[in-house]
Design a protein around this nucleic acid. Structure first.
Lengths: 199, 199
DNA sequence: ACCTGAACACCGTTCAAGT
DNA sequence: ACCTGAACACCGTTCAAGT
């Protein structure tokens, strides 16, 4: 009974997760769905659009809960009801120190989310390039760093530095993983990099 | 009169430079050389090896002159004659401040070299992942930062942070360039990132 | 030693035609 | 509205056979 867009995206997600980007072809996807390749183009414009949707899915969990406060536009999925203010968060407005911790938490969760999907960094890197300041976790990081006392402009620049460093790191790690090379030192290298950037 | 490895690599370099990675196929390369696709496999093991050679070519200029001093292994192309010591460089051993400037210069030249080749970041990222501490400019950066007063271990970690941030940045920029999106702010964002990492 | 010819197992995308 | 069938213009790699 008629394929729909979600089934296409779900199947693509499954192939990416399980076999990696090299195996995520439109033809393979069609085969998995029991349909001719051309049928997919009724539901998605092209492969690039499909990958953009997958990138959104990877970073979506970052836009929920976590740092409590929801500054305008922080949550893309469900625009929070009018008077929703921070509830069980620290005082009325978080302390600078705690907000910097929020940034560390955010970039760490971003890394985990991307790292958890095979070739995730390749997919998310394109989405970041298309919309560097709109794609998560950039706006959330900018907000956290502003709360920590930075001016908005340097906060955004620092956010971009964190995101690009993270994507560079995860790209390197996932390339090594795909070749069965060791990656034991890479988590510590990531942490050191984040500390240096936020020092 | 018999194709040789250099001709294959030169032609590949030309296609990459001119048309980008999407157009650098073994079949296209063979056509450009007036040969059947299978002939290439006498000269290179596979496409991956070819890309590794191209990555080396992109970073090769970094290993020549620049910071004057040549600590063991700094110059891969031509092992310098025995008694070659720094000539017109500052005193006998550079000052910490000057050595940190060397690091900034190195990472800036690395960015320029990668940025100058279409999809250069994609190609160099794989080479970096295969040999993070051996691929330039990592060892040169580690040396410069050690001269600047850092201990070897943190110096290497800082070098990796710089290289991965730079690859993340150039990947984003070249993705945008390939889609004719503006990149006006990206050089400044790079500089700010480097300053933050080395602060 | 070096290359051709031919094959194997694939790609992304389009589009008339069917239901 | 949604899909098939078939095509167009491609891929990377292998390998017997030729020179």
């Amino acid at each position: 009974m008629a394929l729909d867009r979600d089934q296409v995206v779900d199947a693509a997600w499954h192939i990416l997760q399980t076999y990696g980007l090299g195996d995520l072809s439109m033809r393979r996807l069609a085969r998995e769905l029991g349909v001719q390749p051309g049928a997919l183009y009724w539901h998605v414009a092209n492969k690039q659009e499909l990958l953009a949707v997958l990138a959104q899915r990877m970073v979506a969990p970052l836009s929920m809960s976590s740092t409590g406060a929801s500054p305008a536009g922080a949550c893309l999925t469900s625009p929070s009801p009018a008077g929703a203010s921070s509830v069980d968060a620290p005082p009325a407005h978080a302390s600078p120190a705690g907000a910097a911790d929020d940034a560390v938490l955010l970039i760490t969760r971003f890394r985990s989310a991307v790292l958890a999907v095979r070739d995730g960094a390749d997919v998310v890197s394109v989405a970041h390039a298309l919309d560097p300041s709109g794609m998560q976790p950039t706006p959330l990081l900018t907000a956290a760093l502003t709360r920590a006392g930075m001016d908005p402009a340097p906060a955004e620049t620092a956010a971009l530095t964190l995101v690009r460093f993270t994507l560079g790191s995860v790209t390197a790690q996932q390339t090594r993983e795909s070749m069965d090379l060791p990656t034991a030192t890479m988590a510590a290298e990531f942490e050191a990099g984040v500390r240096a950037i936020l020092a």
